[in-house]
Write a protein that binds this DNA or RNA. Sequence first.
DNA 1: TCTATGTATGATGTATACATCACACACTAT
DNA 2: ATAGTGTGTGATGTATACATCATACATAGA
Lengths: 220, 220
Amino acid sequence: MSKFDLKPIQKNKTSKELVYDELKSAILHGTIPKDELITEISLSKSFDVSRTPVRESLAELTKEGLLEHEQRKGFKVRHISENEKEQIIYLRKSMEKEGVRKLAPIITEEQIQELDDILSEQEDAAQNDDRLRNIELDQMFHKTILEFAEQNMFKKIFIDLHNLTRVIGHEALMKPGRMEEVIKEHRAILEGLQEQDEHIAMDKLDYHLSNTETVVKNIK
Amino acid sequence: MSKFDLKPIQKNKTSKELVYDELKSAILHGTIPKDELITEISLSKSFDVSRTPVRESLAELTKEGLLEHEQRKGFKVRHISENEKEQIIYLRKSMEKEGVRKLAPIITEEQIQELDDILSEQEDAAQNDDRLRNIELDQMFHKTILEFAEQNMFKKIFIDLHNLTRVIGHEALMKPGRMEEVIKEHRAILEGLQEQDEHIAMDKLDYHLSNTETVVKNIK
DNA sequence: TCTATGTATGATGTATACATCACACACTAT
DNA sequence: ATAGTGTGTGATGTATACATCATACATAGA
């Protein structure tokens, strides 16, 4: 079992957590067909729970921007416009550059090691052509930087933004060859941090996210 | 009745909307004592509704960051740390500067007029020493710019961030004299927009938010 | 006295019944 | 045939009963 499990093993999940986790996972993995209508009742039947926990999960995912609701119709996976994609990348650049700027001068050996470990795992995933895992580890890498930089408000917003782009689907986000590029770009950022040079780190981050933007925007 | 009503008159509010609106308003107006414990049951008694709509309102406000929850204890108005205050202002600067940068070259006469109207109302409010209304109009001014700039994702995040700072209380945010300053600073931003000079608009915005930051951070 | 355990209490989690309401579809009167 | 009306259906809104679970406090045994 990997050191970096995104979902901590959670025994005795509540029904709501179960529905929330499964549904979110389905959305992020692109399992749910675009335009498919979801209702409280349909889900409560699928999961064999009452409407209450389903209702709460739907509300939460809607608030996160992963679902959209149409009165008396139901819920759908949210569509992300080009304009929104631009705003997402802009915000990520803004927050994450500030993150590395803060972190570079004070990063510890341990923290460098942990980031390095994530990249190693990412290489494993790339070897196995595991796009899904690669995206999860991509999120983990960026998230961890913000965590080390003690920018937890940024971190929270980042996760939501990253998830929003994931709606697009992992096949599209991690096309052949992109996985390896991402890892290289991550390594470059990490090197900047390791040398405690915030300018390099920020530049490399900017470059990485510009590439991400290109990928994201080339998906209709 | 003013042209700029933040809450559109909403007849036939659902119970949830009623609880949500009232509770949110109480939080933003600083009516709820710090450290006061709120529970589903206590609120459902206060509002004479069942726990269900109360529960949903609490969940939503927690997700927005206005409340925090302690297992088996209850909900409290969220405390905002210094670090978080910095992140809030940083993000606002980042988003709003990008907003005026986008808007300046394409702003219309009508839009300038609408922003001007907001500032007039703000002057009225200042005359009447109405701090509460002033803060609402402050939010309205910034929000409208992002709306005109068609940066709706920024707008959504901005509103949450602005609300977060409001938890601090309107007396503190709009100390004597600050209301007039805010209006002047807003006018300066508007002038930059009017001249379609994005650099001036961005500078004035930066200045305004730096002052805001000083105010916010001088509150313990 | 100290520790362990029982138990009451308060809080949240969940199921379920019923209310409401928008919409689609059928039917009727013109 | 068409406009207007009735009605079923599906979806959400709300109340409420019951389950679960953490905690504090009391109490009994060592």
